[in-house]
Amino acid sequence: MGLAAAWRARSSTAAGAEGGAYKETPADERLFEQVYLQYTSEYMKGPMYWHKDKLQGSLPDYPGRPMIRDGKYTPYVLGNLKSFSSNELAFLSMLFFGVGLYGNLQFNYYDPQWAKVDAGGYFNVSYIVESLLLPISFFMHIACYIQKQNGK
């Protein structure tokens, strides 16, 4: 008896669903076309097909991690620095600038290395390594600005 009642209830709900059949509106049709077009275009970019968007130099975005959103750079541009706050990056920028400037000034003016080499000595390598932090401070400054624009 239970099986017969369940079968009858199932057939009556199916008949009720057919009575109020879904009717597609023009908005639904446009939405389906948009989703289908986007899906097929992404599918065609798969590993078996060549597409200009797959070239690393032209559009290096990874899915779900856009480089530019609303005309501003996102933290994904920074790579490993994306988890740093703008305050931390500002500190690193000033630190690298100070150390790099120190190494540069020491090498050229306060402890002139070219005069030492002319006298038969050797360069002080620490000044060279310190001066290499000067351009890195500029990129830290840019990273700080990007994080500041993103509210971090």
Rank of each mutant, 00 (worst) to 15 (best):
H141L: 07
S58K: 10
Q106H: 12
N124C: 11
L78Q: 09
F91Y: 06
R10H: 12
Q113D: 10
F84V: 14
L105S: 07
G16F: 03
E29A: 12
E42M: 01
Y22H: 12
P112G: 13
N87Y: 09
G79H: 10
R65V: 00
M44D: 05
G103W: 00
F139S: 00
K152M: 06
Y109P: 14
Q147V: 02
G19N: 11
V117R: 08
Y49N: 15
S83L: 03
Q34L: 11
V77T: 12
M44S: 12
S58V: 12
L95R: 11
H51L: 08
Y122W: 07
D70K: 13
P66H: 08
K54T: 13
V77F: 09
P112V: 15
K45V: 10
D70T: 07
Y145Q: 00
W7N: 13
V117L: 08
M140I: 05
L3V: 05
F96R: 01
A115G: 09
G103F: 00
K152I: 11
Y36N: 07
A14F: 06
L89A: 05
L134C: 03
N104H: 08
K72A: 09
S58R: 13
E33D: 13
L89I: 06
T74H: 02
G79P: 05
Q147S: 06
W114R: 09
K148N: 09
S85G: 13
D28S: 12
K52E: 09
P63H: 04
N104T: 10
Y76E: 03
A21Y: 07
S83E: 05
N87D: 13
F32L: 15
R30D: 14
G19M: 11
K82A: 07
Q34E: 06
L105I: 15
Y73H: 15
S41I: 01
Y22L: 11
V35A: 15
T13V: 08
G57S: 07
S41F: 04
T74E: 00
I136G: 02
K116V: 07
G16L: 05
A21Q: 09
E29D: 10
R65S: 01
P60D: 05
Y127Q: 01
I146A: 02
A21K: 11
G46L: 11
A9Y: 03
D28P: 03
L59G: 07
D53M: 06
S131V: 08
T40W: 05
V35M: 15
S85A: 04
S137A: 02
P112I: 15
D111I: 02
L101F: 02
K54I: 07
L78C: 06
F107K: 08
F139Q: 00
E33L: 13
T74L: 00
V125N: 11
H141N: 06
A14D: 11
L55I: 07
